[in-house]
Deep mutational scan, measured.
Amino acid sequence: MQIFVKTLTGKTITLEVEPSDTIENVKAKIQDKEGIPPDQQRLIFAGKQLEDGRTLSDYNIQKESTLHLVLR
């Protein structure tokens, strides 16, 4: 499924993921596309910060959901 990741600069990254993918996994995909190390990434969905060990389905993230990427 496709999800979108919006950065603070207003750029939107499109990722191909599975509901069973972990947040860690998603961060690795963002690193592949954008070169941002996962340890600098914070992903936010519905106002919650997403934890590395959880999966997209844990957070009920469905196709075409938009996550927000904050760098630390």
Rank of each mutant, 00 (worst) to 15 (best):
L71D: 13
G10I: 04
F4G: 04
S20N: 15
A46T: 05
Q62L: 12
E64H: 15
L67I: 07
D52I: 10
Q41Y: 09
R54N: 12
K48N: 13
D58C: 02
S57G: 13
K29Q: 11
E24D: 04
E18W: 07
K11E: 10
N60I: 05
E16N: 14
V26N: 00
D39C: 03
D58K: 03
L50A: 02
K29G: 07
Q49L: 04
D32T: 07
K48Q: 15
E16A: 14
F4N: 05
N25M: 13
I30H: 00
S57V: 12
L67T: 02
L69R: 01
P37C: 03
T66S: 10
E64K: 05
R42V: 14
N60A: 13
Q62I: 14
E51S: 04
E16H: 15
E51Q: 07
D58M: 11
Q41T: 11
L15T: 01
D21L: 14
E64I: 07
K48T: 13
V5K: 00
T12M: 05
D39W: 04
T55S: 13
Y59M: 04
K29F: 04
V17S: 05
V26W: 01
R72Y: 08
I23A: 03
I44W: 10
G47P: 01
N25R: 11
T12A: 07
Q31G: 10
L67Q: 01
D32G: 12
L71R: 04
I13K: 01
Q40M: 07
S65W: 04
Q41H: 05
P19E: 14
L69C: 02
Y59E: 07
D52G: 07
T22Y: 07
Q40I: 06
D21I: 08
V70A: 04
L71T: 13
I36E: 03
L71Q: 12
G53L: 06
D39S: 08
L69Q: 03
F45W: 10
H68G: 04
F45I: 10
N25E: 13
Q41M: 12
A28V: 12
G10K: 04
V70N: 04
T66P: 03
E16W: 09
I13R: 03
I36A: 07
F45L: 10
K63G: 09
L43W: 01
F4D: 03
E16K: 15
I36W: 10
F4E: 11
D58R: 03
L67M: 05
D58Y: 10
E16V: 07
I44Y: 13
L43Q: 00
L69S: 02
E34R: 04
K27P: 00
